Simulated assay, not measured.
Amino acid sequence: MKRTKSIARIAFLVVFSLFLGCASPSNRLRNHLLQTEGLIALWDFSEAAGNPRIAQGVAPFSLREMGRPIERVKEGPISGYAAYLHDSAFFSLPHAETGRLNIHGKGQGVTVMAWVNWEGNTGFVGGMWNEYTDGGRRQYGLFVHLPHYNGADQVCGHISYTGKPTPPFPYSSDYSASKQTLEKGAWHFIVFTYDGTYIRSYLDGVFEAREPELIRNTSGFEGLPEGIVQSKNPYHFPDGMGDNGSDFTVGAVVLSRGMGNFFKGKIGGLAVFDRSLTKHEILEINKLTVFN
């Protein structure tokens, strides 16, 4: 009897291994993400235009189209589809429905990752970030191309505790920026992590540290005649994340003139974790990423 059970177990393992080997790259990536500790939400953007985009994870968070119906295109590493954002369209989830996406606190970690084909200009990818209401309800957000404080054509991870601009500046300067730059019109895997002390930006699974450098647009302020010299990757920010009341948006943020920082291009997946993933974990996810 024991021998029979042993043979049956071996047969099961062989069949299971064959199944995994035959699984499509997109299924392997999706399954890996769903099994990764700390996942709060994963959107694969498989839904057709006119429909909410529903997350897998701890809750079916429902992103609504704003501005116009958002076209679905047949590209992307998770579902084989992507949302094509242009003409000031974006997605939104009201603050009252953010639930566990409302990640905040001293020492609290967060990871936001996305698979994007970016066409240029400053673009907000996803997170809880509002630069205007009540003086600012910034919290956490993944951007591409923030040139004002040395983030041109780069992956940028923004964190705020107060929700307001960084004193004494008119904007928030508290973001990491990858050393590598994105190629416009090409698919990339972009990530930022925050461990409660440092923000780090990754491009295509790789973190590259930046040496301390003079930060643009920081000179001439009171107490800063020569400006600030600091590293943008990792970016030191021990303050933590505030609980500041922003909606969760994808593709745009609230600015003083209304919605802005519109992402232009395709988003084939977006995931949020309530911890800082390690370099090894991010590299493994990149290895599983196959762009169709």
Rank of each mutant, 00 (worst) to 15 (best):
T4W: 02
R9F: 14
I10A: 14
A11K: 14
F19E: 10
F19T: 08
S24Q: 06
S26I: 03
L29Y: 05
R30D: 10
N31I: 01
L34T: 04
G38R: 00
A41M: 10
L42R: 03
L42A: 07
D44C: 04
E47G: 07
G57S: 13
F61K: 03
L63F: 02
R68S: 11
R68Q: 10
P69E: 14
G76K: 01
G80V: 05
A83Y: 13
A83L: 08
A89G: 15
F90G: 00
S92W: 00
L101C: 06
G109W: 09
T111M: 14
M113C: 10
A114W: 06
E119K: 07
T122Y: 08
G123P: 03
G126E: 02
R138W: 09
F143E: 06
H145R: 13
L146D: 10
S160F: 09
G163T: 15
T166R: 09
P167V: 13
F169Y: 15
S172C: 15
A186Y: 10
A186T: 11
W187K: 10
F192D: 07
T197Y: 05
E208V: 15
A209K: 13
L214W: 12
S219N: 06
Y235W: 12
Y235R: 08
D239Q: 15
G245N: 11
G245R: 10
S246K: 09
A252V: 00
A252Y: 03
G260E: 04
F262I: 04
F262V: 01
G269R: 05
A271I: 03
D274F: 03
I282L: 03
I282T: 02
I285K: 02
L288H: 07
